[in-house]
């Protein structure tokens, strides 16, 4: 197993966080079959910062939905933390989403009439083990981690785009998931806010979080250590990013 793109030398011997073999997805709509993914083989280790890159319609979002337990593969095997995920019920998938994975969306998807704190606390409502007394404390810590301490009690409608996305990142952190999926996180942002958001993700990665970024922009993908290209539902290339970007240099240029 190639371990060039993993950080730890012991990575090869560890159980991969995500291990996908011969995975394919076919959508059936009115008896018309639309194949979206073909024979995907992919391994992701804990602690990786990986980008799934591809043009729209390439199947990258579908792959992310399957990896994030929002969707199920049609064929193939998906092992998460070494366990096969086939045959899980909707409730079991919901519990995995509540505890093991989290999402940052292009459209932010924040509750509009709620504060930053309330939004960040939202995933904890569905967490089976974190007691309600701890919610506020954990949410505040996540908000501080993305630098929004002063906006804690702002309504999300009062925030800028970048602040909204950082709120969403705080929300994805609060359950301390195994992996954070970021789906075009800078897609709705101007370049400065986009860089700030990528900076926040970089920081998470540096502190040990596994991040899977989905984007069609090379410039965004280049923040990651590893770039997986998806083209027409197949993995076209899987390489370590040689010219890795960093938000620190870029923001100082502005």
């Amino acid at each position: 197993m190639p371990s060039a793109h993993t950080k730890s030398p012991r990575a090869a011997s560890r159980t991969p966080l995500i291990e996908v073999t011969k995975l394919s997805k076919v959508y059936v709509n009115d008896a018309v079959e639309t194949p979206v993914l073909f024979d995907i083989d992919l391994r992701v280790q804990s602690g990786e910062f990986m980008a799934i890159m591809g043009p729209s319609g390439s199947g990258k979002s579908t792959l992310m939905h399957i990896l994030g337990f929002l969707d199920r593969p049609t064929h193939g095997k998906y092992r998460f933390l070494g366990k096969d995920t086939a045959g899980r019920t909707d409730d079991e998938l919901a519990i995995i989403r509540a505890t093991k994975v989290s999402f940052v969306f292009q459209a932010f998807h924040l509750l509009p009439r709620a504060t930053v704190l309330e939004n960040v606390m939202l995933p904890l409502l569905y967490h089976p083990t974190i007691p309600s007394a701890e919610r506020q404390h954990r949410a505040q810590a996540a908000i501080n981690a993305v630098g929004l301490f002063e906006r804690t009690n702002f309504l999300t409608s009062q925030l800028s785009g970048g602040q909204k996305q950082r709120t969403a990142i705080a929300r994805s952190l609060v359950t301390e998931p195994q992996v954070i999926f970021a789906d075009e996180p800078t897609g709705n942002l101007d370049s400065v806010s986009g860089i700030q958001v990528m900076g926040a993700l970089e920081k998470l990665h540096a502190s040990g979080h596994t991040i899977i970024l989905v984007t069609h922009e090379r410039s965004t993908a280049e923040f990651a250590d590893r770039i997986v290209h998806i083209l027409d539902g197949r993995i076209a290339s899987d390489s370590r990013s040689h010219s890795r970007r960093s938000s620190s240099g870029l923001t100082s240029l502005k």
């Binding site: 999402f103 459209a107 998807h109 939202l122 995933p123 359950t175």
Partner: peptide, 13 residues
Amino acid sequence: QEIGLRKALGARP
């Protein structure tokens, strides 16, 4: 959208 979000965050049906 809110329902979708809640489900993505782990809400069961």
